[in-house]
Simulated scan of single mutants.
Amino acid sequence: MSLKNPAFPSSEAFDVINSALAASEADRKDALKQGNAVFAFTLKNKAGEVESWHIDLKTKGEVGKGPGDKPTVTLALSDDDFGKLVSGKANAQRLFMAGKLKVKGDVMKATKMEPILKKAQAVKAKL
């Protein structure tokens, strides 16, 4: 089941993150231990449409559509900025300081997202 939405080009990253989590049981357990939260992402594309995905690193260690069950932290940003963040071309702190990344919930948990995104970059580099 693909999580990609053609209206949101960067949503392909959720498939990459999901396959990174599914690739090895040890990596998944490590991500659960590091994350210990449900991360929700609300993206807005150039047409003004809004879509949500979540990364459950609290119980299942998987990615899904929608905000998930009681997200610990919700990150809202543009589809374009999310693409840059996942590819390593943008820094979450700089996006936040520039007002391009909105964080609701546990801000400290949001900092735990960086290693998971780096794993996705490593998997994407192998593709």
Rank of each mutant, 00 (worst) to 15 (best):
I116K: 02
K118A: 11
K60N: 15
K70Q: 15
I17E: 01
K70R: 12
E51K: 14
F14V: 10
A7P: 02
A98G: 07
K46D: 15
A47V: 00
K102F: 02
V107H: 02
A120S: 11
D30L: 12
P115M: 11
A23F: 01
G83M: 08
V123Q: 14
Q121C: 04
Q93I: 01
K46A: 15
D106H: 04
D56R: 04
A31T: 08
D81H: 13
S19F: 03
V107P: 03
L57N: 11
K65D: 05
K124L: 10
K104G: 00
A23T: 06
Q93Y: 00
T72N: 09
A98C: 00
K70E: 15
L3K: 10
V73S: 07
V38M: 09
A76F: 01
E114R: 14
K119L: 14
D79G: 08
S2H: 05
D27V: 07
L77W: 10
H54L: 07
A110W: 07
A125C: 02
A13I: 03
A125G: 12
L117E: 07
K109D: 02
D56Q: 04
V86S: 10
A120T: 01
G64F: 01
K126T: 05
S10M: 04
K112W: 00
K104W: 01
V38W: 11
N5P: 01
S11M: 06
M1C: 01
G48T: 06
S78K: 03
E114Q: 15
K104N: 13
D81V: 08
D79W: 06
T59S: 12
A76D: 11
L101V: 06
N18E: 12
V123P: 00
G99L: 09
G66Y: 09
L127M: 15
D81Q: 10
P67A: 13
A26G: 02
S10C: 04
K119I: 00
P115C: 10
F14R: 11
K109C: 01
D79Y: 06
K118Y: 00
L95C: 10
K89N: 05
F14D: 05
P71R: 05
K84N: 09
M97D: 03
E49F: 01
A23W: 00
F96W: 04
L127N: 13
A13E: 02
S24I: 00
S52E: 07
R94K: 14
F82T: 08
I55L: 15
F82A: 08
F39S: 05
G66S: 09
L32Q: 05
M97W: 08
G68T: 04
A98P: 02
W53D: 11
N36T: 02
P71Y: 04
S52Q: 13
N18Y: 03
K60L: 15
P71F: 06
S2T: 13
M1Q: 06
K118S: 08
N91A: 07
L32Y: 06
L85M: 11
K84P: 01
G61Y: 09
G68N: 06
R94H: 02
P71M: 06
A92Q: 06
K65N: 10
F39P: 03
K100T: 02
K44Q: 15
G35N: 04
P67S: 13
A125Y: 08
L95A: 09
V86W: 14
F82P: 08
G105P: 12
F96Y: 14
N45Y: 03
